[in-house]
Design a protein around this nucleic acid. Structure first.
Length: 921
DNA sequence: TCCGGACCGTAC
DNA sequence: GACGTACGGTCCGGAT
């Protein structure tokens, strides 16, 4: 059958631009979007269409602008980095032999719509290649959609219904209801795809919905009635025209021979290595190379490919292969030999729990060659399951390989797998690369780093979702009950994708001499350290917390009764909404603070502001404080003690915060209270066992010291070199006092300025913080900058650097990308500037303590019977230590923390020792 | 019943 | 709109 492919060029260009990292070639020309589009085109050509058109918008007004002057009025201008890629893109398209269609006065959508229907009418099989959901309205027999970026195909009413919940002919109605922010078309507020589809299911069409509008209930119903009149216009705007006059037809769009030399020149210039290889293999418009297997597993071996498009998008694609399940020792030994021979392989474990400290090993997968991977099932258990290798015996066979540091292992969040394997008796050595951390170091601040996102972004793969094999929600089954065939497809794919991702990401990292040390010298060595800290855990005095919880509960009850009395009725103190209704509507107290969304606020600041006018706000505040402690800490922490170890184990997210800080969760042990007496008491439940002590070491004012280092401000540097109380010194400087004359309030103000500056705070924020007027706050800030001009210059330099490069860096070269530094709303840009100011300081502090952790852990390993590192809280390390070893530990840790960086000012470490964490402060 | 957004509050 | 980085609790409305 004759085939026509219509490519929605603009849609791909934009999507590729935003989906891909801002790659550039050797000359620094931006190539990211181009790379995405070229891959997409190559994939399209492998389908060998007879006719093809690359359709783009022409400049000038269209009928939609006439109908609706505000059409697309909100669209920002094309970013320069994207604009620069338009001409190269057209060059490549031309050279590939594809006709480019650009019709003045007609949008690309309408050109595509018209051509599609005309061709389908002639019996031509039409495929529209686009990332734009609007085209679903054109799906019918003979007209299909593909999205080459995501690898999806929509080719029937059923497919459209599955995706959007409505038939193709209802898509325009759906779009009319939803509106389209990008095109500046306002729909029904609060009506998204789900609500729109629900209404269309009930009333069939937009006209039906309009007719039924009076009876539709709720807020959304009101919103619907508010925009009723414009909905027909929305529908017209959303309708893709299929009848515009064109002087071309399918017959004019025959795919020409590619101009290989031009392509070679273009690919070389832009550094498209895989495309070049393909060119020399002669398959640009030619034969599809055998498809490597990434897809669902069949019966132990892999099922055929999903689509050729996926393959073409995979720059790491190599020979065809298969996914194999291992059932006997001979097969396992053959794989072990292969992995050892390769010297480097990707590894992934499958378990029955997301918590690696509770998970039981269900299987292991390996891959040392793209497209060829194995899954070793060890504990699958369901009726009729095939006999598997004994888990302990299999692990014994694997141990020499996994514990051999000379064989390099690659993982995606390998800390998880290290835990699981350690708990099954294997102490992995040679854990060399982690794709999560590669991505984190390369693209912190602008990309997600989970494997699914990485695979889609870097390889053009849609990975098998966990839910696809194990189900989700109530229907989820443990991985051990997943059929081995399905498990093989999923698990082996994970290893395969990890290997492919590593090849792509490590190449990018190698090309970044500034980033490589962050990855190689800080993040990778830290993986094992964090695994050990997590595994160590901390001993919790559960009885103490339960006592505190009971006490809090009694006090909460009293406060609740007082609140009921004061309010004259009962209400839920935990509900901000009810609190607002009570205070503002019933008691008519003044509403002085609003939430970010403009609603009345019941937060601490708001209640504090009206606490002098009525007794109730204070009671609510007191209740809140206690409820927070009980709900978040005293009652929750004891529940999370691991029954196996009897201790509390947090999980550190190494790619958790964009600045490079760690994040802690399950439970979060980085936000245990300290500021109030009731809160601080919780720390008394973090205890050392008999004969041991808790030792806490923290960096003194590390971020301010880094600010002194980065700004080189003479006054600030001198203050730290003199070992001064920095807030007092600042107060003396700013208020013109001698050190000993500084009052408490002056010091407090100086402290607020010091911290505020590091967060990019302005006069407004400082005023609010100190309860002074905005003018006074502005005066303080001006005074500060006049005394510390180096700080002002540093901040201006940082902003300028961020705007120019799109990122900022730490002392150690860690990079944080700031997506909104030069685009988006004014507020977004301002937010990005504040983040730009803060990130070098917060990030450098994170680098320093990470380096210290690696160093301390290295020293600690031989002494692990006597002392353990058990917590990290951004600028603090906490240890559990035999009493007789405390002095040694303090000396060694302090020395290593102090030596973790050479700054223009000294690093100072404070420490404390006690029976519990509270005492150790 | 589950999920996610809004709001609130804890840490550094 | 106004102070950076996190996690997690409860409430509540809407989807399942």
């Amino acid at each position: 059958m004759t085939r026509l492919v219509l490519i929605d060029g603009s849609s791909y260009l934009y999507r590729a631009f935003h989906a891909l990292p801002p790659l550039s070639n050797a000359e620094g020309e931006p190539t990211g979007a181009l790379f995405g589009v070229v891959n997409m085109l190559r994939a399209t050509l492998k389908e060998r269409p007879d006719y093809v058109a690359f359709v783009v918008d022409a400049p000038g007004k269209t009928f939609r602008d006439d109908l609706y002057p505000e059409y697309k009025a909100n669209r920002p201008p094309m970013p320069d980095d994207l604009r620069a890629q338009v001409q190269p893109m057209c060059d490549v398209v031309e050279a590939l032999g594809m006709p480019i269609l650009r019709v003045p006065g007609v949008e690309a959508d309408d050109v595509i719509g018209t051509l599609a229907l005309a061709a389908a009418g002639e019996g031509i099989d039409v495929t529209i290649s686009t990332g734009d959901k609007d085209f679903a309205q054109l799906v019918r027999p003979g007209v299909a959609l593909v999205n080459t970026m995501s690898g999806t195909r929509t080719d029937s009413d059923e497919a459209v219904i599955a995706k959007f919940g409505v038939r193709p002919d209802q898509i325009v109605d759906l779009l009319a209801l939803m509106g389209d922010a990008i095109d500046n078309i306002r729909g029904v507020d609060k009506c998204g795809p789900k609500t729109a589809a629900k209404w269309l299911a009930a009333y069939d069409s937009l006209d039906g919905v309009i007719a039924a509008a009076p009876e539709i209930k709720g807020k959304v119903g009101e919103n619907l009635r508010a925009v009723l009149e414009r909905l027909p216009l929305n529908r017209t705007l959303a309708t893709i025209r299929t009848d515009v006059p064109l002087d071309v037809g399918a017959a004019d769009l025959r795919l020409r021979e590619p101009h290989v030399e031009t392509l070679r020149a273009l690919y070389t210039r832009y550094g498209f290595v895989q495309a070049l290889k393909e060119l020399d293999g002669g398959s640009a418009n030619g034969v599809v190379p055998a498809r490597a297997a990434i897809g669902r597993a069949g019966s132990g071996f892999v099922a055929p490919a999903a689509t050729a498009a996926d393959a073409a998008l995979d720059p790491a694609l190599a020979a065809p292969g298969a996914y194999e399940a291992i059932f006997d020792a001979a097969a396992l030994e053959a794989w072990i030999a292969r992995l050892r021979e390769a010297g480097i392989f990707a590894l992934d474990t499958e378990t029955d729990s997301l918590d690696p400290l509770r998970a039981s090993l269900v299987g292991v997968s390996f891959c040392c060659e793209p497209g060829r991977a194995a899954y070793l099932p060890l504990a699958h258990d369901y009726p009729g399951v095939r006999a598997q290798l004994d888990r302990d015996q299999a692990l014994d066979l694997l141990r020499p390989l996994l514990e051999d540091a000379a064989v390099r292992k690659i993982g995606q969040n390998g800390k998880y797998d290290l835990h699981v394997l350690r708990r099954h008796g294997i102490d992995v050595a040679g854990y060399a690369d982690d794709t999560l951390l590669e991505s984190f170091v390369l693209d912190s601040g602008r990309a997600r780093h989970d494997m699914d996102s990485l695979a889609r972004r870097e390889l053009g793969f849609q990975t098998t979702a966990y839910a696809e094999v194990a189900g989700k929600g109530a229907k989820q089954i443990p991985f051990s009950q997943v059929a081995i065939d399905d498990a093989t497809g999923y698990a082996a794919e994970d290893a395969d994708v990890t290997l492919r991702l590593h090849r792509v990401l490590s190449a990018r990292l190698e090309a970044e001499p500034g980033l490589l040390p962050v990855y190689r010298d800080i993040e990778m060595p830290l993986v094992g350290v964090l695994a050990r800290v997590e595994a160590n855990g901390v001993l919790l005095d559960g009885a103490e917390l339960r006592r505190q919880g009971a006490d809090l509960g009694r006090r909460m009850l009293e406060l609740q009764q007082r609140a009921t009395g004061l309010a004259g009725r009962s209400f839920n103190l935990d509900s901000p909404k009810q609190v607002c209704a009570l205070l503002y509507d019933e008691l008519k107290l003044p509403m002085l603070v609003k939430t970010p969304k403009g609603q009345p606020s019941a937060n601490e600041e708001a209640l504090e502001a009206i606490a002098d006018l009525h007794e109730l706000p204070r009671v609510i505040l007191d209740y809140r404080g206690l409820a927070k402690l009980r709900g978040t800490y005293t009652d929750k922490l004891p529940e999370m003690v691991n029954p196996e170890t009897g201790r509390l184990h947090t999980s550190y997210q190494q790619a958790g915060a964009a600045t490079g800080r760690l994040a802690s969760s399950d439970p979060n042990l980085q936000n245990i209270p300290i500021r109030t007496e009731d809160g601080r008491r919780i720390r008394t439940a973090f205890v050392a066992p008999p004969g041991r002590k808790i030792v806490a070491c923290d960096y003194s004012q590390i971020e301010l010291r880094i600010m002194a280092h980065l700004s080189q401000d003479a006054g600030l540097v001198a203050a730290f070199e003199a070992g001064a109380d920095i807030h007092r010194a600042t107060a003396a400087e700013v208020f013109g006092r001698r050190l000993e004359e500084v009052t408490g309030d002056e010091r407090r103000a100086a402290k607020a300025i010091n911290f505020g500056l590091m967060y990019g705070m302005g006069a407004f924020g400082l005023a609010r913080n100190l309860g002074i007027s905005r003018g006074e706050a502005q005066d303080y800030i001006a005074l500060y900058f006049s005394r510390y001009p180096g700080v002002r210059d540093f901040m201006e330099r940082t902003r300028a650097h961020a705007r120019e490069h799109g990122h900022v860096e730490t002392v150690f070269g860690r990079r944080l990308w700031l997506e909104y530094i030069s685009r988006g709303t004014q507020a977004q840009r301002a937010g990005a500037e504040r983040a730009a100011i803060n990130a070098p300081m917060q990030g450098t502090a994170a680098d320093i303590i990470k380096r210290a952790m690696v160093s301390v852990d290295g020293w600690l390993q031989p002494h692990r019977e006597r002392a353990l590192m058990i917590l990290q809280v951004h600028d603090e390390l906490v240890f559990e230590c035999e009493e007789g070893f405390v002095d040694t530990l303090l000396a060694e840790v302090t020395a290593r923390m102090t030596a973790a960086a050479e700054l223009r000012v000294p690093l100072v470490v404070d420490s404390g020792v006690g029976d519990n964490w509270e005492q150790a402060h």
